[in-house]
């Protein structure tokens, strides 16, 4: 799923144009702060109302949680009102938010070329989660022959032990293009093994705070034995062969991890 934050005074009409032009399932997430700031009645944690269409309401969902829920079965997610989200940015119209380097920037929705904007959005790193990759292999043509899915998730460890300084975040830099191609090669080589039906790997880049997921390997296989072996080989090969560089920022210091290992 491609995910962008749309900011600016023309964000709403811009998202409407993008939704219309996009192919596949599209989701939107709006961050709104209630004007009265308070709750008026006791509510359940989550409420679904289901019919031919459905709607939901609830508490305690972050923008990121909402995006994560869309990721398994949407092609695009457009996020409104959340300049703090760590996502590629589209700007339409005036904005007060500090926008680093937008992938698309127009003075107003009238200047928007929706197809060109979608082209730029398709050029960003897709937003993947463990669930989105599992959903993708379950949709595989070969899923009929699968009796097992094995997965690996690598995450940002805050501490090695109790006395360890807390890691605040990791920052990953990749050799663009080459990293993706090397991952594709590893996937294809693992898929050539007997009993291995589909392999998906994804590594996030940029700044990742402690506790968040970094890397996923998902293996669709006939049986569990080859699934376990392949998921282990997959993450080992990814770590050894894919040009990704890890910088660690703790409470006290900043360093490139390869200089310490």
């Amino acid at each position: 799923m491609y995910t962008v934050s749309v900011l600016g005074s023309d964000a709403e009409p811009t998202v409407s144009r993008l939704v219309e032009a996009a192919e596949g399932r599209v989701g939107t997430v709006r961050l709104e702060t209630a004007a009265d700031g308070g709750r008026t009645r006791a509510r359940e944690a989550t409420g679904y109302v289901v019919d031919d269409s459905w709607h939901a309401s609830g508490e305690g969902l972050s923008v990121r949680d909402a995006i994560d829920r869309l990721a398994p079965d949407h092609e695009y997610a457009f996020v409104l009102g959340a300049p703090e989200a760590r996502l590629p940015v589209v700007v339409a119209g005036e904005t007060d938010a500090a926008v680093g380097d937008p992938i698309v920037s127009v003075d107003g929705v009238g200047d928007l070329d929706a197809d060109a904007a979608l082209g730029a959005i398709d050029g960003t790193d897709p937003y993947e989660t463990l669930e989105s990759l599992v959903a993708a292999v379950k949709r595989s043509d070969k899923a009929t022959y699968s009796g097992a899915i094995a997965t690996f998730t690598g995450r940002v460890r805050a501490k090695e032990d109790e006395a360890d300084e807390r890691t605040r975040y990791l920052e990953f830099e990749k050799y663009d293009g080459v990293a993706e191609r090397r991952m594709d090669e590893i996937e294809s080589e693992l898929e050539a093994r007997d009993g291995i039906l589909d392999v998906r790997m994804h590594h996030r880049t940029g700044r990742i705070p402690d506790g968040e997921d970094i890397v996923f390997v998902v293996v669709l296989a006939g049986h569990r034995g080859e699934a376990f072996r392949t998921v282990e080989d997959g993450i080992d090969r990814l770590k050894a062969e894919v040009p990704l560089f890890k910088k660690e920022v703790t409470d006290e210091e900043t360093f490139w991890v390869h200089e310490r290992d």
Partner: peptide, 12 residues
């Protein structure tokens, strides 16, 4: 041409 340090690694 590209020149880089060991990739990110991490203990097994």
């Amino acid at each position: 041409l590209a020149l880089f340090p060991p990739v990110s690694g991490g203990r097994r």
